[in-house]
Simulated assay, not measured.
Amino acid sequence: MARVSQEHLDARRRQILDGAALCFARNGFHATSMQDVLKEVDLSAGAVYRYFSGKEELIAAIVGEVLGSVHEAFEGAAKQSPPPPPDLLVGSVLGRTLDTKAALTVDGEPAFPRLVVQVWTETLRNPELARVLRDGYDAVGGAWMRIVEGYQEAGMMRSDLPPEHVARTMIAAVLGFIAQLSLFGPAPVEVLQNGLRALMSMQDTPAES
Rank of each mutant, 00 (worst) to 15 (best):
residue 148 V to D: 04
residue 161 L to W: 12
residue 113 P to V: 08
residue 160 D to I: 10
residue 1 M to V: 09
residue 123 T to L: 04
residue 5 S to L: 01
residue 104 L to Q: 11
residue 133 L to N: 05
residue 96 R to A: 15
residue 60 A to L: 07
residue 90 V to L: 02
residue 172 A to I: 07
residue 202 M to E: 11
residue 149 E to Q: 13
residue 131 R to G: 08
residue 48 V to R: 04
residue 112 F to Y: 13
residue 192 L to D: 03
residue 207 A to H: 13
residue 103 A to E: 14
residue 137 Y to R: 09
residue 73 A to F: 06
residue 200 M to P: 02
residue 86 P to K: 01
residue 82 P to T: 06
residue 92 S to M: 04
residue 65 E to Y: 04
residue 140 V to T: 02
residue 103 A to S: 15
residue 108 G to D: 08
residue 65 E to D: 15
residue 44 S to E: 04
residue 9 L to T: 09
residue 157 M to G: 02
residue 72 E to V: 00
residue 76 G to C: 11
residue 154 A to V: 09
residue 122 E to G: 04
residue 142 G to E: 01
residue 177 F to Y: 15
residue 40 E to Y: 06
residue 199 L to Y: 09
residue 1 M to S: 13
residue 144 W to Q: 04
residue 32 T to V: 11
residue 208 E to K: 10
residue 107 D to K: 14
residue 185 G to A: 05
residue 187 A to K: 14
residue 195 G to Q: 08
residue 113 P to Q: 03
residue 182 S to C: 03
residue 108 G to T: 08
residue 163 P to N: 05
residue 88 L to Q: 08
residue 86 P to F: 00
residue 197 R to K: 08
residue 180 Q to L: 14
residue 27 N to Y: 10
residue 152 Q to V: 06
residue 74 F to A: 04
residue 149 E to K: 05
residue 38 L to N: 09
residue 85 P to R: 02
residue 90 V to Q: 00
residue 59 I to F: 11
residue 36 D to Y: 09
residue 54 G to M: 05
residue 16 I to Y: 07
residue 58 L to I: 01
residue 25 A to H: 05
residue 69 S to M: 12
residue 14 R to L: 00
residue 149 E to V: 10
residue 32 T to A: 05
residue 103 A to P: 03
residue 178 I to F: 03
residue 30 H to Y: 13
residue 103 A to W: 12
residue 77 A to T: 01
residue 13 R to M: 10
residue 172 A to V: 07
residue 174 V to R: 10
residue 138 D to M: 06
residue 144 W to K: 10
residue 164 E to D: 12
residue 4 V to A: 09
residue 137 Y to N: 05
residue 52 F to N: 05
residue 95 G to H: 05
residue 50 R to H: 15
residue 23 C to Y: 06
residue 16 I to N: 00
residue 1 M to R: 11
residue 141 G to W: 09
residue 54 G to S: 05
residue 183 L to H: 07
residue 173 A to E: 10
residue 31 A to N: 14
residue 76 G to Y: 01
residue 2 A to H: 12
residue 150 G to D: 01
residue 196 L to M: 15
residue 58 L to K: 05
residue 24 F to E: 03
residue 83 P to H: 06
residue 71 H to Q: 11
residue 70 V to W: 01
residue 106 V to W: 01
residue 36 D to C: 14
residue 43 L to K: 01
residue 54 G to K: 11
residue 115 L to P: 08
residue 70 V to P: 03
residue 134 R to I: 08
residue 27 N to M: 08
residue 25 A to Y: 06
residue 199 L to M: 14
residue 170 M to C: 14
residue 113 P to W: 01
residue 110 P to I: 04
residue 178 I to V: 14
residue 193 Q to D: 03
residue 172 A to S: 15
residue 106 V to Y: 00
residue 120 W to K: 10
residue 46 G to E: 09
residue 145 M to S: 12
residue 69 S to V: 12
residue 191 V to L: 11
residue 172 A to P: 07
residue 175 L to I: 11
residue 94 L to R: 08
residue 84 P to L: 07
residue 192 L to P: 03
residue 24 F to Q: 07
residue 92 S to Q: 09
residue 113 P to D: 03
residue 106 V to N: 01
residue 139 A to E: 06
residue 12 R to I: 12
residue 184 F to Y: 12
residue 175 L to R: 13
residue 123 T to G: 05
residue 180 Q to V: 08
residue 154 A to Y: 06
residue 200 M to K: 04
residue 77 A to F: 02
residue 36 D to V: 00
residue 110 P to Q: 08
